[in-house]
Design a protein around this nucleic acid. Sequence first.
RNA 1: GCGCCUGUAGCUCAGCUGGAUAGAGCAACUGCCUUCUAAGCAGUGGGUCAGGAGUUCGAAUCUCUUCAGGCGCGCCA
Length: 580
Amino acid sequence: MISAINQEIEAFLSSVKGINESSNQMILDKFSTSISDNLENGHLTTNVCMIAASVLKLNPKELAKDLEKHLKGLELFKDVEAAGPGFINITLKRKDFVSVLLKIKKIKEKFGESLIGHNKRVQIEFVSANPTGPLHVGHGRGAAYGDALGRILKATGNIVEKEYYINDAGRQIDILTASVILKIIQKDINNFFPQNAYKGKYIELIGEDFLAKEDFRYDNLESFAKNMPSDPEEEIDQVIKNLQGLDEKKWNAVKSFSLESIIKSIKDDLKDFNVNFDNWFKESSLGSLIESSSEISNSINKLKKGGMAYEKDGAIWLNTDSSGDDKHRVLIREDGRATYFASDVAYHKNKIDRGFDNLINVWGADHHGYIKRIQASIEAIGSNKERLIVKLVQFANLFKDGKKVKMSTRSGEFFTLKDLIKEIGSDAARFYYLSKQSDQHLDFDLDIAKSDSKENIFYYIQYAHARIFSLEQKFKETYPELDTNMRRIEDNTYSKCDMLIHEIAKYPNIVNKSALTLQPHLIIFYLRDLSQLFHSYYNDNHVLSESEENMLSIIFCLSAVRQTISNGLEILGITPMQKM
RNA sequence: GCGCCUGUAGCUCAGCUGGAUAGAGCAACUGCCUUCUAAGCAGUGGGUCAGGAGUUCGAAUCUCUUCAGGCGCGCCA
């Protein structure tokens, strides 16, 4: 319907005097015809006259009068009215207005889906937490956001691949390995434990699991902790070196065991959180600098060949000018080891080579200084930095009993994602993570998430869904022989549901907007508004005591409302409740 | 110092590719359960959209600036 109206508007515009091709195009690009906010403004609204007036320096109200006349003459609509500062409000014929109900009845869970993505291949990389410990609540936000984004983009016609990048190479993993070993041998070394080692309880548990599997013993540990450097960084490096020297085979065994154990726990946590990845990409698969044909060597060679990487002060640097980064960045250190950045450059080259149209990286907000150098690396390997979209997810503060929950990674004591799921459930957790724009700080209040008041929007929406579901069940039990229909709504002898119909018609636009702006929270606020309209209706109308004909139509409409709420929750990865 | 995010009702937040009277919930106060789920509904009060300037027919929305808060600025990852 909207596209038909826009065609008429286009025809109208060409008849406006003083218009030329460029101004015409400018207007067409900027105006919109949409479902009106409010039924008082008709079913559909367009702002084209105000846009045209500003481009053409005309009076918007007069233009609106002309367009009103034009549209009225078509007899396509029940009513057309110029209103306010120059809006055109259109009231549809009854049949057109209620047609959304038929559509939902027909396509069910596909209502809201679209093709605006044009089959673009989009890769979303998210979470990608270092496998050195359990996921905490900060990771949870990235997980909920990335996964919801994936679902939304998929529903809007993109081909989506979700990926987790596992940083399984480098120093962090060595520290992890050392931490586990030190816990295993703690009795023999007088409980020596460096400040910078990982401290959580999970470290001990991994050690115990390893011992259950195979024997572990070193000889001559008496002097192990003697003469350690006082600098914490140097100390942990020394510990790693010593342990590797004691028995390299054992070191490697503990290393791979610890890694696998943590990766498994991360996968389990994410699975419990209803987050699924299509691909788990290991940093180690990029190879090392020693192998001349590894991906990491190849990408650095390519950069050198292109003149974007160069040697200075004994290190290899990347020229990052193309993205306006503050300074050039080191790829290979003076001592010959690759930086984390070098791996990341190779990883992004790998992604580009896989042929995605767009890459979306979901990163913690603390990584924002990193964006420009990665963009520069993408340009440097000969691609276009616009292909990479980085979405920063700001921190989430957790509040419990009215107080902020302290997060301390250092001590190993933090609120994990697992704890959160245990506390409020996966669905509620996802919901609250998504309830605010991702690039803004989130105060996550556990007390509200568990409360049974209207303040708890999660249950408010679920309650609407459950109430309709229960109504449908009661109706089926009481009148098993009857089929619902929309006769009374279509002939306008029952119009109390109109607000609901008008609201659900907005849903596909909400999903599209959410996909275009990468903002899942729009769907949450929409669902709240829809639920509010439903609860209000439900309170004023006792459905099952209506006349049979009315009831058939009401249930028909409410089923569409339930379907819409269900679709909105599902697209966010949340399971709708059938009873509460 | 530089960069990014933020500042809207007492509190938590929507609204931001400029558009109709700035919206919800909580908190405060009033009502509504012998009927389909009261985890609900209806109502009242509450605003210098941080301050200032600019662009515009029109600014919470765009630009500049001041103030306030958060985060980041390694040959760490």
